[in-house]
Each structure stands twice: as structure tokens, then as C-alpha cells.
Simulated assay, not measured.
Amino acid sequence: MQHELIAKRYIKPVMDSFDGASLENLATLLGVVAKAYEDEKFNLIMNSNEVSDSAKCQLVLDMVASANSSAVNNLIKLLAENGRLSLIPTLSSLLIREIARTKRTFTGRIYSNNVVDQASVETIARDLGTKMGATISLSYVASDFDGVRVEVDDLNVEINFSKSRLNAQMVEHILKAI
């Protein structure tokens, strides 16, 4: 959580410093570096007190050298100077979310204990996207939820259709009508 709070301080200047295509490229580059943080040997190097900060910085700079961008290099150097190279995975995920928010393109999941076919998933995504004024892509996740639950985290949207709740509401409605 603390990493995210610190990383958020870097996101706004990054968003202001790069144009759309450059932001996408930066997100891809940071994603590659973030993937390296999943490797145990890479983490040993990055967390080692025996490896100098300049060597750690150079390692990450070599990973992003294909971009041939002084702005990307300056970002990496700034992170290294402040001892914040470990923020790169968090920066990567925050940057991807900010780009999606800017483009109004979001991803979400549909949970159900019944299989939901791809056509239904696409229909729900399209209809929900129309209501929210965004482009939404959903993926089906098998779960033990008795009904259907749709979640789009970055939009803070959660919709539930529970069979047990529907049955309880129908019984309540019938009892009120009597």
C-alpha cells in the first residue's frame, strides 16, 4: 500500500511529460521491467547491499535501452537516485490503469457457478460499457457464486444477481401482496 502511495506521486508528472503513444511505450517498458521483479535472482540483485545503486540503475537502464529515450532514462535515474527502483512494478500497474482511465477502456470479470458463453459475456460488456460511457472487456471466471456477479475494479462497479436473493425477494413480494 505504501508503495502505491509513493508511486502515485510519480504518475501525474509522467502522464504530463509523455504523449499518448509514448505513454503506451513507457507502460510496455515498465511492464517488462516489472516482470523481471517476479524473478527471484533479479530480486536478489536489486535487494542486495553488495551491489551498488549505480549498478542496479545501469541494469534497469540496460533493460529499457531499446526505447532509446532520454525521458525514460531520466525517469529510471530519478527513481534510482531516490532509492525507488522497487516502485517500478507498482508504477507499471498504475500507469496502465491511468492510460485505461484516460481512454475510458476498462477490464472486468464475470463470476458464476454456471458457464457463461462468450456471446453473453460480450453482450454484458457492451451493454455495461454503453451505460458507463466506456469500453469494457469482460472475462468469465468460474466460481461458486450462486448467480452472476460482474466486477469492473477501476470503475468501482459491482453488479450481483443472486438466485437466493431473487427467491427471497419474490417470497417477500408475494407475502406483502397477500
Rank of each mutant, 00 (worst) to 15 (best):
K35S: 14
T130G: 04
I88G: 03
N73I: 00
G129N: 09
E50W: 12
N49L: 09
Y140S: 03
I96R: 14
D144I: 06
V51E: 06
I76Q: 01
I45C: 03
E122R: 14
E81L: 05
M63A: 13
N74V: 02
T130C: 04
N49W: 13
D127Q: 13
N82V: 01
I99L: 05
I110A: 10
G108K: 05
L79C: 04
F18T: 08
N68E: 09
E81H: 06
K131S: 13
E24H: 11
L85Y: 00
K131T: 13
P13K: 15
L87M: 04
S48Q: 03
A36N: 15
A125W: 04
D62L: 12
L78E: 12
F18Y: 11
L91V: 03
A134K: 11
R97N: 02
N73M: 00
V121G: 10
L44H: 07
M46D: 04
D16T: 13
A80I: 02
N82P: 15
M46H: 03
D127Y: 03
D117G: 09
Y111V: 00
E40C: 10
A21H: 09
S22G: 09
S143D: 00
N68H: 09
L79Q: 04
Y37C: 03
V150S: 06
N82G: 07
V116G: 05
N43Q: 13
L85F: 01
R109F: 10
N114Q: 13
K131L: 15
V148Y: 10
N114V: 15
K131F: 14
L30T: 02
G133C: 10
N82R: 09
E122I: 11
Y111M: 02
I136Q: 04
G20H: 08
E38W: 10
A100V: 08
V121F: 15
L59Q: 04
D16I: 12
G31T: 07
K77Q: 11
K77S: 08
D127I: 07
V33M: 09
S69G: 00
R149I: 06
L29F: 14
A34T: 08
C57R: 12
L44C: 05
V32Y: 11
N25T: 09
N49P: 08
S22N: 07
K131G: 09
M63K: 13
A80L: 02
A71C: 00
S66H: 13
S120T: 15
D146Q: 09
N74G: 04
M132D: 10
R126Q: 11
S69D: 01
A100T: 05
A134M: 12
Q118Y: 15
E24C: 07
L59F: 01
V60E: 02
D127S: 11
D146L: 07
L95E: 00
T102D: 12
K77V: 06
V33I: 15
L78A: 15
G83S: 00
Q58W: 06
I99T: 06
N25R: 14
D16L: 15
T130P: 03
A21S: 13
L30I: 03
M132F: 13
L78S: 14
A80P: 02
M46S: 06
N74W: 01
I96H: 07
G31W: 11
D144A: 11
L138N: 12
S143Y: 03
S137K: 14
L79S: 07
D19I: 06
S70W: 00
L61H: 06
